[in-house]
Structure formats: C-alpha cells, structure tokens
Nucleic acid binder design. Structure first.
Length: 339
DNA sequence: CATCTTGAGTCTAACGTTCG
DNA sequence: CGAACGTTAGACTCAAGATG
C-alpha cells in the first residue's frame, strides 16, 4: 500500500540517496482527542530537502545568483548587501517567534493532557482521575531558577510519600504530571499542575502543605474542596486554564530559554500519522456529532486568494471522542494496525 | 538505626531558530 | 503552517547526607 509520497534525490555526485517523504494530511490522536490536518502544500518529512543538493539544485542556485547580482546592481548594492536585505524581509520578527513558541507549547500541553488523562491505572484496574493543584510561595520568589529548584524538590518528596502510600519502591519516580508557572501581580511565581496518577491521600491539604512547605496549596478549584476531574468532558476547561498561563508567560518574555511547561518523563505521547490512506479511512469513522472545532483555511484562501503563509492554507478538524469510546477504540485499532 | 531529603551525573525532550 | 536541528533545562537514578 502506498501511504506517502516517496522522494529520492540524486545528489551532485550522481548518487541516489536519502529518501524522504511528503504529505498533505496529518492525524494526531491524543487520548479522546483526534485532530485532522489538511495542508495547502506538501509537508516534508525526514531529511530536509535543502540538505541534499542535486545537480539541478546547484544549477538553479547558479541561475538564482546571476539573477540576484543583476538586481543588486539595479539597486546599487553589493551582492552581500542585497542578500542580507532580502533575508531581512522574510525573517520573522521577535513577536512572530514568540507567537510560534507559544503556539507550539500550547498545542503540546493540550495533547499531553488529553493523552494522559484517565490513561493511568491503579492496581485494581481502575483509572486514576486527574487532579489539579496550585502551589504558591509565601515569600516573594521571583527567580524562576530557584522556584523551579523548589518545585523539583517538592515532586521528589511527593513521589516518596505516594510510593509509601501505594507500597511501591520508595525511591522511584512514579508520579505523572504536567505543570506550568505563572507570575502573580507582585511578580511572585506560582505553579499550576495536573497529576495523572496521584493516589488517594488522607488529609490531602495538610499532607501536601507539609510536603510543599513553601506556601499555599490549592487542590481543585477555588472552593478549596477536594476536587478531581471526574469525567473526560471536564478536561477542556482545565486545558484552557493551562493554556492561558502559557500564553501569558511567553508573551511577558521574562524567561528566555526557560521551559514554559514542565512534565514528568515517560508521559503517554500523542500518536501522529502521516499515512494518507489510513487517515482517510479513519476520517470516515469519525462521527460528525463529535466534531468540536473546525477551521477551514482553504475557504478563506479561495475567497481572498491571498497566500498568507508558505503552507498556503490549513484545514483543521478537531474531534472529541470522550462520549464515544467505541469510536475511539476503533481509531486506536486502525492506527495500531496500519501505522 | 530508620526514615526522609538532597547532590551529582546522565539523558530526554522543550526551546529558539531555520527552511520547506 | 509544519518538521528538523543544535543547544540546554531539568527529570531521573543512585548514593550520600540530614534528621530524630
């Protein structure tokens, strides 16, 4: 079965090498969430084509250089100056880069929360319910590095405690979680987190307060009532919260090169497929009533006839199969079998 | 001594960036 | 818009240190 378009290049020395692929569709399954992408232009996978120069590529480069020299002359610039000027035109602004970064982090957070909620199981076979938690510092901690250090130690101590409760090997790290940080008005850092396999803890407030030891603890919502995420349907709200914080922290750009969200290792990963045949098969199985969001970029593109990005347009369809476990199982099966 | 916490080194995955 | 890539934050483990 031909799934993807195969490309192979004959390099400048005449050696055929390094196959790569391209696709116009993509499917991502994260727990009950299924995302379907259709692109206005091929997405390349594998080696970047630019890294493999063919004879034709090199000839084209020579032609392009001649063309640039001509244009540079017309504008009274040297070739180097002209190249620098052209490059500056297409270079993303710092704001663009922040936006890309925020978008990627938000997308990944959403997928990780969907992929891991209700997917971790207790000894008795029942799934853990996700639990959200907020950690604040009583002293005005504004240095992210030292805040993260305290956060890390909290996780280590909590791992020890929950291992004890569940009778597991004490010094292993079994907790699965995701956390984001947020700045309060006064500049103090605090953390919002979600645990995917936190066991039942008696007197959870006092216990967690002691283990944290650096300030306030909030479990669940503002009501200060012990609250779990009871069903998958509630997830969307929680994800919106986490995403809001990310947006803020990235655009305030006070912490370059720092992680905008923190996760435990070995979380369940979203399943990504580029196999066109399989994706179309899966698409047929997705119930219409489970479509929760769509954006049809191709329509805008056709109406306005404006290519506002390299990719031309993206059609995006998001399904939530939370209320439809049979459909989810079927999609899992298909992805498992054919990908 | 038993129980809990942290330091040091290793390695995975997020970030910033480029290029299709 | 996407994936790829080099760099590096920080999760993990093992063992050593702190606490009582």
């Amino acid at each position: 079965m031909e799934f993807r378009k195969n490309h192979s290049y004959t390099d400048k020395d005449g050696i055929q090498t390094q196959n790569f692929y391209s696709t116009k569709v993509k499917l991502v399954k994260s727990g009950s969430m299924v995302e379907l992408y259709k692109f206005g232009r091929d997405i390349f996978l594998g080696h970047k084509p630019s890294r493999i120069k063919t004879k034709e590529d090199l000839e084209a480069e020579v032609e392009a250089k001649k063309e640039m020299e001509k244009k540079a002359k017309e504008e009274g610039l040297t070739l180097e100056e002209y190249i620098a000027m052209e490059k500056a035109k297409t270079k993303p602004s710092p704001e663009d880069l922040l936006r890309f970064s925020a978008q990627r982090a938000k997308r990944q957070i959403k997928r990780l929360i969907y992929a891991n909620s209700f997917k971790w199981f207790k000894e008795d076979g029942k799934a853990y319910k996700p639990i959200t938690l907020t950690l604040t510092f009583k002293d005005n901690i504004t240095n992210l590095k030292s805040a993260n250090y305290e956060f890390t130690k909290f996780i280590r101590r909590l791992n020890y405690e929950t291992n004890r409760i569940e009778g597991k090997e004490l010094k292993q790290s079994n907790l699965k979680y995701l956390a984001v940080f947020e700045l309060q008005q006064r500049g103090a850092i605090h953390y919002h987190m979600i645990f995917f396999n936190l066991p039942y803890i008696e007197n959870i407030y006092t216990k967690l307060y002691d283990i944290w030891g650096r300030g306030g603890i909030m479990v669940g919502g503002k009501k200060r009532k012990f609250e779990k995420v009871k069903t998958r349907v509630h997830l969307k709200k929680i994800i919106d919260y986490f995403i809001k914080y990310i947006q803020k922290s990235i655009f305030e750009k006070q912490f370059p090169n720092q992680k905008k969200y923190i996760t435990s290792k070995d979380l369940l990963k979203p399943i990504i497929s580029y196999f066109e045949d399989v994706i179309y098969l899966v698409e047929e199985k997705l119930p219409n009533q489970d479509l929760v969001f769509k954006h049809e970029g191709s329509k805008d593109y056709a109406e306005n006839n404006i290519a506002n990005s390299y990719i031309k347009w993206v059609d995006y369809f998001q399904y939530d199969l939370a209320k439809n476990p049979e459909a989810e199982a079927e999609v899992d099966f298909m992805l498992d079998t054919y990908c």
